[in-house]
């Protein structure tokens, strides 16, 4: 890595890695939320299944999926790394520490929120991705597409799972509430004239994305959509 030296292993370099992968995941969530929102068309999942089919077969998306996984792994790896290093930077802790006086709790709990997200991802991938890619989706819809929508309806029949999804979407919301703006700060994209917009976008994005995702299991469970 001659010329680049410690570009990525330095403290700031690691931050870039977190930031870049985080932004990448943010972008992915937009696509993901967009396609999943097709269920709200309430057409028995027909359009949704088209989208899902496209996602599963288009080679660009498939390639992107590898990058996504890699990104996620790197994000997680670096998160663990950072958390360990940061713990080491203060071997002896304070008897009294009043963090709430100077920062938001979720900004101090990104590791915890992230771990919750990780647990969620495992469940989530097992629920849908493993089914759609490996074990196979048992039924087809009226258009003859694999009926991922049916899988969804079945999974979200379970109140415990629905509750877990909603709770974990709350943690996603908080993870993003800090993470979105934080990534901009990390990348150095800070400008007195645009900071307000970034802050605003951060809040709106986090809330809309999390609500959208949370609404899906709720809507299915309560029968709001059929």
């Amino acid at each position: 890595m001659s010329g680049f030296g410690n570009a990525l292993s330095s403290s700031i370099g690691r931050k870039y890695v977190m930031g870049v992968t985080g932004i990448f995941l943010i972008l992915f969530l937009i696509v993901h939320a967009g396609i999943n929102s097709l269920i709200f068309l309430d057409d028995n999942g027909l359009t949704f299944n088209v989208g899902a089919h496209f996602m599963a077969t288009n080679w660009i998306i498939r390639a992107g999926e590898y990058v996504l996984f890699l990104g996620l792994l790197v994000h997680i790896y670096q998160a663990i790394n950072l958390t360990i290093q940061n713990k080491k930077a203060r071997p002896q802790t304070y008897a009294v520490y009043n963090g709430s006086a100077n920062s938001k709790w979720y900004s101090r709990s990104m590791g915890l929120l992230g771990t919750l997200l990780l647990i969620f991802l495992v469940i989530h991938l097992k629920d849908f991705w493993v089914v759609s890619r490996f074990t196979g989706i048992p039924t087809v819809d009226a258009n003859g597409h694999e009926d991922l929508y049916a899988v969804m309806r079945e999974k979200f029949h379970d109140p415990v799972r629905v509750a877990a999804y909603v709770l974990l979407m709350i943690s996603l919301c908080y993870h993003l509430l800090h993470g979105f703006a934080s990534a901009f700060q990390t990348m150095g994209w800070n400008h007195s004239k645009y900071n307000g917009i970034i802050k605003g976008a951060s809040v709106w994005y986090s809330i809309i994305i999390s609500i959208l995702f949370a609404l899906m299991p709720i809507a299915v469970y309560t029968g709001l959509i059929n």
Partner: peptide, 18 residues
Amino acid sequence: MVAQMDAEGFGNCTNTGA
């Protein structure tokens, strides 16, 4: 300066703003 900061054993910023 960043290299020296790292060598001193300070932690990594997570933008909490504290």
